[in-house]
C-alpha cells in the first residue's frame, strides 16, 4: 500500500521534474519590455530626464561641444556665479522661463548665442524629433533646476508616435543630391564661406579645390581631427562637428566632396 503510493508519487514527481529540467536546460530567452519611451502617454519627469541624458551623451551628439573644451558653453558644470544650466537658464533672456529658453535655444540656436562664443550650433530639430528635443530640455532643466517639462508639452508639439529616445543615430534629414542644398542642410555654411554666402569662421570653401585634393577633403569632412588644421585656423581646431559621417549618406558625401574639390 505505502510502497505503491510512493511509487505513484515518484512517477508523478519524476515526470514533472523531467519536464521542468527539460525546459530549464535550453538557453533561456526572456521577452523584455522594449525600452522605448511611450511619450504620448503619461510620461514622468524621471523618464524624460533619463531619455534626455542618454540622448545628450549619445545620439544627440551634444557632448561634442557642450561638455568638453571651450568652443561652446559647458552645460555640465557650474558657470561661475550663475550656477548650473538648470539654475541659470531662467535668467538668460528677459521674459523667457527656463523651459522656453532651452527649447528655443535648441531649435533656433543662433537667436541666443552666449557672448564670447561663435554661432556654430546646428538647429537640433533637423536631426531630432520634437519629443527628443523636449527630453533634452528636461535633462538640462534637471541639472540644478526643477523639471517643468510635462506630457502636455509633448502633446502640444504633436509628438511623432515612434520617435522614442531609441533613435540613436542622427538619420540624414533628406536624400537630396543637390550640392548647395546639402551644404545648406548640413549647416556647412554656418562656418565656411562660399562666394558671398556663409560666415567667415572656418577656412572658406571658395577656392578650397585649389588648396586641397579630394582625399583630404573627404578625410576632413568625415574625421576633422585626422588632418592638420589649415594655417591661421589652428585656434579653432576641434570646432568642426564630427557627425557628418553619420549624417550624410555615402553618395551625399561624395557629392559634397566632389563639389568642394571643384571650387578652384
Amino acid at each position: 500500500m505505502l510502497a505503491t503510493n510512493l511509487k505513484i508519487l515518484s512517477v508523478v514527481l519524476g515526470t514533472i521534474l523531467f519536464y521542468t529540467y527539460l525546459a530549464g536546460s535550453i538557453p533561456q530567452v526572456e521577452s523584455e519590455v522594449p525600452a522605448e519611451l511611450d511619450l504620448s502617454a503619461n510620461v514622468t519627469a524621471e523618464e524624460l530626464v533619463a531619455a534626455g541624458e542618454e540622448l545628450y551623451a549619445g545620439g544627440g551628439g551634444c557632448l561634442a561641444c557642450h561638455g568638453t573644451g571651450t568652443r561652446a558653453p559647458n552645460l555640465l558644470e557650474p558657470d561661475g556665479a550663475t550656477g548650473l544650466i538648470g539654475e541659470r537658464c531662467g535668467q538668460r533672456v528677459e521674459g523667457m522661463v527656463c523651459k522656453e529658453y532651452l527649447h528655443a535655444s535648441l531649435i533656433r540656436p543662433t537667436d541666443f548665442v552666449v557672448p564670447g562664443f561663435d554661432p556654430i550650433m546646428p538647429d537640433m530639430s533637423r536631426t531630432l524629433s520634437e519629443s527628443q528635443v523636449w527630453t533634452l530640455v528636461a535633462y538640462l532643466e534637471s541639472l540644478g533646476g526643477e523639471v517643468t517639462v510635462s506630457s502636455e508639452d509633448l502633446a502640444a508639439s504633436a509628438a511623432d508616435p515612434a520617435g522614442g529616445a531609441t533613435a540613436g543615430s542622427a538619420a540624414p534629414a533628406s536624400t537630396t543630391m543637390e550640392p548647395m542644398a546639402l551644404l545648406e542642410e548640413n549647416q556647412c555654411l554656418v562656418c565656411h564661406q562660399l562666394g558671398d554666402q556663409g560666415a567667415p569662421i572656418g577656412p572658406p570653401f571658395t577656392d578650397v579645390g585649389a588648396r586641397r585634393d579630394v582625399d583630404f577633403i573627404r578625410s576632413k569632412v568625415l574625421d576633422p581631427a585626422s588632418v592638420q588644421p589649415a594655417e591661421g585656423y589652428e585656434a579653432l581646431a576641434g570646432t568642426m562637428p564630427t557627425t557628418f559621417g553619420t549624417q550624410l549618406s555615402a553618395a551625399q558625401l561624395e557629392v559634397i566632396v566632389q563639389f568642394l574639390a571643384e571650387q578652384r
Partner: peptide, 8 residues
C-alpha cells in the same frame, strides 16, 4: 515575459 525555465 519570463523565459521558459522560470515559466516551467
Amino acid at each position: 515575459t519570463p523565459a521558459l525555465g522560470p515559466a516551467a
